[in-house]
Design a protein around this nucleic acid. Structure first.
Length: 572
RNA sequence: GCCGUCCUAGCUCAACGGUAGAGCAACGGUUUUGUAAACCGUAGGCUCCGGGUUCAAGUCCCGGGGACGGCUCCA
């Protein structure tokens, strides 16, 4: 534990001490240090809200001045239980620690005693009283299990100095300004309506962005030998029984019940349909790897409290593909997929990390096959040289997976792409191919998405670019701003030339000052504006202004078109 | 789903339990403008929905919906 963590941990004690003084019948659970501060989970007799935090924070500062050092001492189980008489949370922890035969230690500071492993600031004087503050309350299940009681979690921010605390708050405030939930509607990309929670409406400008991403995906994958399919959105229950999703996923699917023997599940994943397409005709080893891609719309009945703008939706499309390979081809194909990942993410200039998910508690198939698959993935990951983390039990029920993770504006991590290995579904669908020796063999399926879902990816890139997209993704690439309506004819001439070059443009013909037109175009994050007045008309040029950079001076029309086309085509 | 908060004009926000208001946007007019907000005017409301308390509810209470921050979940 480093020094800052020790300070944060000490402040968690202080928080609990303040709460106990103000709310004597509150019961403490646990209170660790976290990335930006600390929290303490507490069971209150009557619920508290953010409005109660100033009072608690004031009490913390009051107690703060009376504390000096944390005194630790080892105690026996009975003493520990007595100390926390009437507190079921601490009692449970004590039992557990004692059962494991570990030491029980109590730490005292001032008149406050807590069950604790240690790791505090050497003295409270190391903590600057203005370097912490309480931030918000939230609900949290005892021991992180939703079957348990819900406690109130009080979050606090803490840093070494007041300056760092302020810097952090400024950073968060700036991040909120790039929140895709605000920028999206502002830039007229998407909206939501209460009649379809979690299901975005894509507005005309958003559709351009969406389609550009799909176009890029399609171009890249066609070159790599992928073949695109489209399959039904509604499928009878029996399809999901065959795939295994009925047992594992049905409650999270939308269902269309048309009466007895006609219950359809709304497609929540593409794999079962891809299996059907593979099995549609006899396949040979010569066909493998067979790469079937699709972007059909998916619906998942995500729990209401988990919806989050575009980052967690109920309707979305994945840049999906199912690759059927022989066991020997797994390694090479994974490497090919990782190359695509690298290519995609470097285009957007985004950082990502890999995470291996291993066998979960609920799984299909035999342990031996799983172990082999996990070992293969570990080897490929090690070879990629990118470094990765492992999340035990995070695999899908049909196989282990490698996830690509990215962070949103306020630092929350989201799963984007995922590459999953599947030995189960091909068997369940009784898929086969004829091997070189004429025997029937079962293929292995690789499920893979690179963006993840288009929706989540767009959410992330809106925040990544703060809405200021590169030219190739910009819904409007050029805005033409006439200074007066005397230039109308010339403006039309320029617009026609740009349009026939395939440039997406808008003409700002409102009766407004040029200053106002520039301001509006800047706010809409349009990459280039052409200011056209008498001077430009006479010289047959355009005055180019770049988003965020200001005036670039006059340019010939053809020169400007070439510049935009180059930027757009190279996706720079 | 659970805990907490929020929902007023297209947007951002006001309004002690006592006549719902401002700025921006929209629309009409004036102005014809040179690199981030011209001026004047007009219109705009089931205050999320349903019930209740009250002489009186945007405001208080109950139920529902939706959103946000967390928790849990996440193929």
């Amino acid at each position: 534990m480093n020094q800052l963590e020790a300070k944060r941990h000490s402040l968690a004690h202080l928080l609990a001490a303040a709460v106990l003084e103000l709310y004597p019948d509150a019961q403490r659970a646990i209170g660790p240090a976290i990335d930006n501060g600390f929290y303490y989970d507490i069971k209150f007799a009557t619920p508290i809200s953010n409005d109660d935090l100033p009072k608690i924070e004031a009490k913390m500062r009051e107690i703060f001045s009376t504390w000096n050092k944390f005194e630790g001492k080892e105690v026996d189980k009975e003493t520990a239980l007595n100390t926390f008489k009437g507190n079921p949370f601490k009692q449970e922890l004590i039992d557990e620690i004692a059962d494991k035969g570990e030491k029980l230690t109590l730490y005292t500071s001032g008149s406050y005693v807590d069950l604790c492993r240690g790791g505090h600031a050497e003295s409270m004087s190391q903590i600057k009283p203005d370097s912490f503050k309480l931030s918000h309350v939230a609900g949290a299940y005892w021991r992180g299990d939703e079957k348990n009681m819900m406690l109130t979690r009080i979050y606090g921010l803490a840093f070494d100095t007041r300056e760092e605390l302020m810097q952090y708050e400024i950073m968060i405030e700036e991040a909120r300004r790039r929140d895709h939930k605000i920028l999206g509607p502002q830039l007229e990309l998407f909206m939501f309506h209460h009649t379809s929670p979690g299901m975005p409406y894509w507005l005309p400008k958003g559709v351009i962005l969406y389609n550009e991403l799909v176009r890029f995906w399609r171009e890249e994958h066609q070159q790599k030998g992928y073949q695109e399919i489209v399959s039904p959105v509604l499928n009878k229950k029996e399809l999901y029984i065959t795939s295994g999703h009925y047992d594992h996923y049905w409650p999270d699917m939308f269902v269309a019940d048309m009466g007895e023997n006609e219950v359809y599940g709304v497609k929540a994943m593409n794999c079962p349909n891809a299996m059907v397409v593979f099995g549609w005709k006899g396949r040979s080893y010569r066909d493998l790897p067979l790469r079937l891609s699709d972007t059909d719309p998916l619906h998942r009945y995500e729990r209401s409290g988990t919806l989050n703008g575009l980052l967690r939706v109920r309707e979305f499309r994945q840049d999906d593909a199912h690759i059927f390979v022989t066991e020997e081809q797994i390694g090479d194909e994974y490497k090919e997929v990782f190359k695509i990942v690298e290519r995609f993410y470097s285009i957007f200039g985004m950082q990502y990390s890999f995470r291996l998910g291993t066998r979960p508690e609920k799984f299909m198939g035999d342990v031996e096959t799983w172990d082999k698959a996990e070992q293969t993935l570990r080897e490929i990951l090690a070879e990629s040289g990118k470094g990765y983390t492992v999340l035990e039990g995070d695999g899908t029920f049909y196989g282990p997976k490698v996830d690509i993770l990215m962070k949103d504006a306020i630092g929350r991590e989201w799963q984007m792409g995922t590459v999953q290995l599947d030995f189960q579904q091909p068997r369940r669908f009784n898929l086969g191919y004829t091997a070189v020796d004429g025997s029937k063999k079962t293929p292995v399926a690789i499920h893979r998405v690179i963006y993840g879902s288009l929706e989540r990816f767009i959410g992330i890139i809106i925040e990544h670019f703060a809405g200021a997209f590169p030219v190739w993704l910009s819904p409007v690439q050029v805005s033409i701003l006439p200074i007066t309506d005397k230039q109308n004819n010339y403006v039309q001439e320029v617009a026609d030339q740009l349009r026939s070059a395939g440039i997406r443009l808008e003409i700002s013909s409102d009766n407004e000052t040029i200053g106002k037109k520039i301001r509006s175009a800047e706010i809409m994050k349009i990459p280039y504006f052409l200011i056209i007045g008498q001077k430009e008309q006479d010289a047959h040029t355009v005055a180019v202004r770049q988003r965020g950079k200001g005036d670039l001076g006059p340019m010939n029309i053809s020169e400007f078109i070439k510049k935009i086309k180059t930027e757009s085509e190279t996706r720079s």
